[in-house]
Simulated assay, not measured.
Amino acid sequence: MRTAPPDYASAALLSDLVPAAAIALGAGGILDDGARSRAARLGLDTEARVAVVVLIDGMGSRLLRDRAAHAPFLRGLLSGAGTLSAGFPSTTANSLSSLGTGMLPGAHGVMGYRLLDPSRDVVFNQLTWDPEVDPEAWVPDATLFERLAAAEVDVVSLGEPKFAGRGLNQASLRGGRFRGSQTLAERIAHAREEVRRPGRRLVYLYWGALDRTGHVHGVDSWEWLEELEHLDGQLSELASALPPDVELLVTADHGMVDVPHGARIDLADEPDLRSGVRAVGGEPRAVHLYTEPGAQDEVCAAYRSAVGDRALVLTRGDAIAQGFFGPVRSANRERIGDLLVVCDDGFGIVDSAHDSPAALALVGHHGGITERELDIPLLRLRG
């Protein structure tokens, strides 16, 4: 199994994408020298009046290339495509925070699907959020959208109305204007309107249906292919409307792998794996275990025995030292589990005593460090 964390030092990263777009828009002054240097690795050195960043949840590079016959528009962009790396864990909350802040996971602090709030000793969902948590205190740094807006770049986010100004959006993607829509056709129509308006602009468009379909039906399903075909057609409509001074950038937040239900450990059936664990966070392929005082070594031994070569079991200190999250701020350290379980291909950990029936029924998962989860495309088109 793969045991190395993402290559934050030399790979082109999702966290570099909006900085690269800022440079193309003539707003590179919002970046420090390090961010400008990292952004240069993406090769987006063409000046643009408008940059459109489209993030398709769950559209990993390997998935797209393997199924490119179903996506003629996207297939036409593959010959000049680049590959970016998501961070660890390869999950939406982490990746969107890296996109919106330009930071690595240990710096922005959104290091999983469910994380511990150390001040309350409560694990909460980083996507659905917790009203007791102030998003701007959880991710306190100015976002890239805020910094671009302060530099007189018009920033507009296109997404679901329920996410406007709350939760993760307010934590990691705050800044600029928000236009809500329910369907992809509506969202594409909004993007087409925005690229025609005068002035410098960053348009951010998020679409999540491909990820949801993969979770429910699996990435090897006809339903996933059908959603990819629909998405491809809509993106083609957007591309046909781009003026010549507009740069279209299509990427994703992570890929996905199918995990057969028979290849999972259910903690509800394994009392030895619940002993000494006060809370479970993360997700099925990247589990955060928060242990009782003094129980870490015993829990670590139990998990290593149970998972064998199907997963890595790391202490918090080892995960930080090996660079899984990049440099970790001291304020974010205790959000990480005392132990991390990072699953190999086709394996996951669930808990039927606490997970919902809908969550237990899911087929597709992500969060791990396989290429199918970490590698995401960077597709470019000039209007």
Rank of each mutant, 00 (worst) to 15 (best):
D269L: 07
V259K: 03
C343L: 15
D66V: 09
E160H: 09
V350P: 06
E136F: 03
L84M: 03
E270I: 05
R382Y: 08
G367Y: 09
L235C: 05
S79K: 15
G262I: 09
D130T: 02
L210V: 14
D338H: 14
M103C: 14
D318S: 13
R278W: 14
D33G: 05
R201C: 07
R274E: 13
T143L: 02
L77F: 04
S85A: 10
R372C: 14
A68V: 03
L74H: 09
N169A: 15
S61M: 15
A150M: 12
W129S: 02
R166W: 02
P357S: 07
D57E: 14
P198D: 15
I265K: 03
E146K: 05
Q296V: 09
T83D: 06
G109C: 11
R49M: 12
A22Y: 04
L231I: 09
R200S: 13
L205T: 04
A295F: 08
G112S: 10
D16L: 07
S356E: 07
R187M: 12
R49A: 15
D338P: 12
L55W: 06
S352H: 06
L25P: 10
R75H: 14
V54S: 08
E194A: 12
L249R: 06
D66Y: 07
G87K: 01
A142D: 13
A24N: 03
E270D: 01
G326C: 14
L210H: 08
E270H: 06
D211T: 05
H354M: 04
A12V: 04
H366Y: 11
L99M: 08
D57W: 12
S37G: 09
G383Y: 12
G199W: 13
M1K: 01
R382N: 09
D351W: 10
G43W: 01
P19C: 07
R187A: 09
T291K: 08
V153I: 15
L55M: 12
A40N: 08
R310Q: 00
R38S: 11
P135A: 05
L378T: 00
E136K: 11
D345F: 12
G214H: 01
V246A: 08
A311Y: 06
D7G: 00
D211G: 07
S352A: 04
V363C: 11
R192N: 05
F347R: 01
L77Y: 05
D66G: 15
A321E: 06
